[in-house]
Write a protein that binds this DNA or RNA. Structure first.
Lengths: 261, 261
DNA sequence: TAGTGGTCTAGACCACCCC
DNA sequence: GGGTGGTCTAGACCACTAA
């Protein structure tokens, strides 16, 4: 009784997703191929940060797979913070313009009281050429154009962070001190809205160092005060590095918070 | 035509899982209830670390739900590192006795070369009473029995970590300097095998400090060298704190590694 | 060859949101 | 009321492992 299996093949046209056919089998589950296709649409800007993406049923029809397969693809994208599901409303492209996202990359927390976002004061913004170490971390060539930013961040008017940022000049063409000054809120929000570059994940290396005279002056502390030094490399789609951020954190009344799972 | 829905109710006997019936609806999806039941079996020791748990089909029969529901429950347990799936073999209870697990909580990485596990030298092991701050973090009463451990850890014979551990005396009754000395490998493995207490997750607070004379001597460095100070609270099932660990890390040739997602 | 987890489908109903 | 994601089921086939 009943009918024959309606879709016996598990390797549809979407199998071409994933790049050049290589020597290895290059097998990939259907939902991974769908995930890659959705990621492409995110990357290309077909759906912009904050926007609603098509419903699961709609995507299932578009890709000619079942809703369950689309669901599993979106499950993983949601786990990676690329999209956000909202029951009854739909699935939205993640954005850095959200209270929720603001503390995803900022791990410096006050010892007492509730976390809040610091105020920025820009010390220097200039176009220059990438030193060798910066070039290596940003996947550039030594001497390529970069933008250098130096700023101090304060919590409740207490200077707490000195930060130096290096950005690929090509990606962030047109970024000026003025635009930085007038923009309030997390820099990743600015990068996303104005330059179409969304930070997806980052790696950090953390050490303890002594404050130099210059940094001590910026933070209004004694020279040789111990500081946390973090070196962060941020990546966008395709694991492309797009930001190098070197920060010095004063940990008198703040700490770097981490969860180990 | 065809049959009636075979299982129209979605609130079987398992609905009793989750504790006392309270004022709020206490609604919980079936798979969450199954997840709670499986977690109970893990906690009670029905399946011990490293062991194979029953197959999905078996658990589905036991709990009178579909395999898909059990699968979703196990998916979450695997995401939380409580169990490990191995295709073709089965699902296993996670254990700290695995190369894979050794670096889940150890985030201090060498700047060059491959990570490896440090050697421990114990400075002090004693039973004492919990100071107020320790008691608060371990959810004990001030003055409750605790075990205090102080040790130095070395990479390639270079002292790099000074660590002080505070453990609830009741949970770790019988822990002596001898057993620590003779046990090679991560301490969490010892805790799991000998005391039936498995660390599930932890939170850390990190700062920069100056080495005291005593710590400087232990690490063979100059006093006032900047060090990373981490305060870690580890939790077992039921979010019960079972370890307070205060570490000082020398970050001359190592760094604290973190991934932001 | 038998058993396990992994993938995929199809269809049902539920909870939530907004009109 | 109609649409969305969330849950649950049942059954098929695949990939991997071990005897």
């Amino acid at each position: 009784m009943s009918s024959a299996p309606p879709n016996p093949n598990n390797n549809p046209t979407a199998a071409s997703a994933g790049g050049a056919g290589g020597s290895s089998p290059t097998f990939s589950p259907l939902y991974q191929q769908i995930k890659a296709l959705i990621t492409q649409s995110l990357q290309s800007g077909e759906w912009k940060p904050g926007e609603l993406i098509p419903s699961e049923v709609e995507l299932a029809n578009r890709f000619k797979v079942s809703q369950g397969t689309v669901r599993k693809a979106i499950d993983e994208l949601a786990a990676e913070n690329l999209v956000m599901r909202k029951q009854g409303k739909g699935t939205f492209v993640s954005t850095h313009h959200e209270a929720r996202a603001h503390f995803r990359f900022l791990r410096l927390m006050p010892d007492e009281g509730v976390p809040h976002y610091p105020e920025s004061k820009f010390i220097e913004v200039k176009r220059t050429r990438a030193p060798a170490d910066v070039a290596r971390l940003l996947d550039l060539k030594s001497g390529d154009a970069v933008i250098f930013i130096k700023r101090v961040q304060s919590f409740d008017a207490v200077p707490t962070i000195v930060e130096e940022l290096w950005l690929p000049g090509l990606t962030f063409k047109g970024l000026t001190a003025e635009r930085l000054e007038e923009y309030k809120g997390p820099m990743y929000g600015l990068f996303e809205s104005e330059f179409g570059t969304r930070m997806i994940r980052a790696t950090e290396k953390i050490r303890a160092v002594c404050a130099s005279d210059g940094d001590a002056a910026l933070l209004h502390i004694a020279a040789n005060t111990p500081l946390l030094a973090s070196e962060r490399v941020s990546f966008t789609y395709g694991d492309k590095p797009v930001e190098l951020r070197r920060g010095l954190y004063l940990t008198e009344s703040h700490h770097y918070h981490n969860e180990l799972n």
